[in-house]
Structures are given as structure tokens and as C-alpha cells.
Design a binder for these strands. Structure first.
Length: 156
DNA sequence: GCCAACGTTGGC
DNA sequence: GCCAACGTTGGC
């Protein structure tokens, strides 16, 4: 089967690669963007490789690796009035927001910084590097994925 | 904290 | 369908 690779953003202050390492597996909840949802629903398959990116961090960058551990299913936080991501327009019988489970694979020995990625010609064209890109889930070309993982393992 | 870029909402 | 207003993201 053709490889599919992804990048997901997370703010380490709320959920870091270390937090994922501790819990092992988690619902990737709170995604409230249609394009990102569609990538989860239509693109992701169990076993897909995922770069975990720390946004709003200093410095921002790719911190580790996860794998898609489930098909997409309704995001329960959308139904919970007490949840920050509550959406009254998402009904249990017609859910608007979906999520997948992600499983921890590896924390990279070194953060692959956004700045380093921008400087690297091998990563030209990555969605995450485009100006103004705010999508929290993006597909990643396997060659880019491999390159980033190699850098994260080589740097010490 | 600032603010540019972007997505969504709602009046018309 | 247009678009101004608003809220959010995320680098800096």
C-alpha cells in the first residue's frame, strides 16, 4: 500500500510529545477546521506515519513521531457543553467534527526546528512552510517525512 | 503582546 | 453571492 504521511500541530503547553509518550495513545480531539477534518476522515488510514509538530513553542518544530491508530469517528468533545471545543451544531446523530486516535512512536533525539526546515532546500514546498499556513493537519510527502526524521535522529 | 494571514459568520 | 466584521492561529 502506498505510504501516507502527515503532520499534526499541537501546542506543547497543552499537549506535548512527552504527554503523548506518557499516555501512549490519545484521541486527537478539538480539530475544528473542515479541511483538517476531511484529511482525517478521507485521507488517514490506520498505520499512517505522523510528524508531531510543536506550535506556539520556542522554538517551534517537529518533536516526534506517532501513528494513526484508528479510523475517523465523532469527536465527543463537540457534544460536551463544558468542553472548550463544544459545538452545539454538532449532534450525536449528525456529528460535524471527527477525530482519529494517535499512538506514540518516538520522540526525536533533537527537535527539527521550523527555522531549520525553512533553510533546508530538501523540504521546499512543504505545506507547513507556506506563508500564512494555519492548517493543523497536513499531508507530508514521504521524502520530506524521511528527511525530517533523519535530521531529528542525526542532530544531537 | 503584536499582528498578519486566514476561516467563518451573518447581514444584505 | 458578496463582503465586512469577527475570532483564531501561530510566528516573532
Amino acid at each position: 500500500m502506498e505510504r501516507r504521511c502527515w503532520l499534526v500541530k499541537t501546542e506543547p503547553e497543552s499537549f506535548s510529545i512527552d504527554a503523548l509518550a506518557r499516555v501512549g495513545r490519545t484521541m486527537w480531539d478539538g480539530v475544528r477546521n473542515y479541511q483538517a477534518r476531511n484529511y482525517m476522515r478521507d485521507g488517514m488510514r490506520v498505520g499512517d506515519e505522523v510528524l508531531v509538530y510543536h506550535s506556539n513553542a520556542s522554538p517551534p518544530g517537529v518533536a516526534g513521531i506517532a501513528r494513526v491508530a484508528s479510523a475517523a469517528y465523532p469527536d465527543p468533545t463537540a457534544f460536551d457543553p463544558n468542553d472548550h471545543h463544544y459545538d452545539p451544531d454538532s449532534k450525536p446523530d449528525d456529528p460535524r467534527w471527527l477525530l482519529v486516535d494517535l499512538a506514540f512512536v518516538e520522540k526525536l533525539p533533537a527537535l527539527v526546528t521550523l527555522d531549520g526546515m525553512k533553510q533546508d532546500p530538501a523540504l521546499d514546498g512543504m505545506m507547513i512552510l507556506r506563508k500564512g499556513n494555519r492548517l493543523s493537519i497536513t499531508p507530508v510527502e514521504p521524502a520530506h517525512y524521511d528527511h525530517i526524521v533523519a535530521i531529528g535522529r542525526a542532530l544531537r
